[in-house]
Simulated scan of single mutants.
Amino acid sequence: MFRLPRPAAWGQLRFGGRLGWARGAVGALFGVALAAVFGKIMPGAAQWPWIVAPVGASAVLVFAVPASPLAQPWSVLGGSMVAALTGLVIGHLVADPLTAAGLSVGMAIATMTLARCLHPPGGACAILGALAATSPTGSWSGLLLPLLVNVVALVFAGWLYNNFTGHPWPHIPAQAPPMPKGTWAGTYERADLDAVLEDWDEVLDVAPADLDALFRAVERRVLRRWEDDHK
């Protein structure tokens, strides 16, 4: 039977251990449900959507990869609202929905980056904003208010659930203990890591401090094995 090839990168993804996917799934269920409830009970809920679709994408980041710089509270809240507002502005300036949708996502990336709240679901929020602005029945409040209520509820759920399940959120980078003196381990400095990241010129979805702690932990493990082999 013909089967599609399995991308090699899939085997490299890890979501918090063997049951990390289950923790993320339960968290997303809790977060989206809470966002929906808040959307249902907010004043004027009968006139506006009680839940906005990009919240589902935000939930994947908040609960499946809570250590990601793109999944932190300010990224979720600020990125969603800044992008939606950008889309609304572009939509009012550009009457054509097709053009407005593309421009809104491009401008949303720029505004989110400047505000230090880059958040992938913000692209969807920007498109919703552009479509709402170019629609005869669309309104600013009809998008911004339900989105704000949903996102605030999701951020609260993320803070509650992630901290309860042992994943401090906002994420706190691991602090690597000092390496023993007089060995090869620990000879690289943080400046070396920063220089390599600068040379790569890529946006990695991991904080440099977490990368540094990971490298230090690998060094300690290799050093222990090296010491055992030379006893």
Score class of each variant (00 low, 15 high):
residue 80 S to I: 08
residue 136 P to M: 05
residue 71 A to Q: 02
residue 62 V to Y: 03
residue 70 L to H: 08
residue 157 A to L: 03
residue 39 G to I: 02
residue 226 W to V: 03
residue 81 M to H: 00
residue 143 L to S: 05
residue 21 W to T: 08
residue 178 P to G: 01
residue 111 T to R: 02
residue 197 L to H: 03
residue 92 H to N: 15
residue 80 S to T: 06
residue 26 V to N: 01
residue 120 P to L: 11
residue 202 E to A: 06
residue 132 A to F: 10
residue 188 Y to L: 11
residue 85 L to H: 00
residue 48 W to L: 10
residue 218 V to R: 14
residue 65 V to H: 00
residue 120 P to E: 10
residue 56 G to Y: 09
residue 52 V to G: 02
residue 192 D to H: 13
residue 196 V to S: 00
residue 98 L to P: 00
residue 208 P to F: 06
residue 171 H to E: 06
residue 195 A to T: 13
residue 78 G to S: 03
residue 6 R to F: 15
residue 134 T to S: 13
residue 215 F to G: 13
residue 154 L to Y: 06
residue 28 A to N: 02
residue 208 P to G: 11
residue 63 F to W: 04
residue 38 F to R: 01
residue 182 G to A: 07
residue 94 V to F: 09
residue 214 L to S: 12
residue 171 H to K: 11
residue 46 A to C: 00
residue 144 L to A: 10
residue 175 Q to P: 00
residue 191 A to D: 06
residue 212 D to R: 02
residue 22 A to I: 15
residue 130 A to N: 14
residue 50 W to K: 05
residue 103 L to I: 12
residue 58 S to D: 08
residue 165 T to D: 01
residue 207 A to N: 11
residue 32 V to E: 01
residue 112 M to G: 05
residue 214 L to N: 10
residue 212 D to T: 01
residue 141 S to P: 02
residue 168 P to K: 13
residue 213 A to I: 12
residue 194 D to N: 09
residue 79 G to N: 02
residue 147 L to A: 11
residue 93 L to C: 13
residue 178 P to H: 06
residue 45 A to G: 07
residue 208 P to K: 11
residue 225 R to N: 14
residue 128 L to A: 14
residue 18 R to E: 15
residue 32 V to F: 09
residue 40 K to C: 00
residue 7 P to D: 13
residue 217 A to N: 13
residue 213 A to S: 04
residue 124 A to T: 10
residue 24 G to N: 04
residue 196 V to Y: 06
residue 228 D to H: 09
residue 32 V to L: 12
residue 156 F to T: 12
residue 149 V to R: 07
residue 139 S to Y: 08
residue 146 P to C: 04
residue 149 V to E: 07
residue 77 L to S: 10
residue 102 G to R: 08
residue 64 A to E: 01
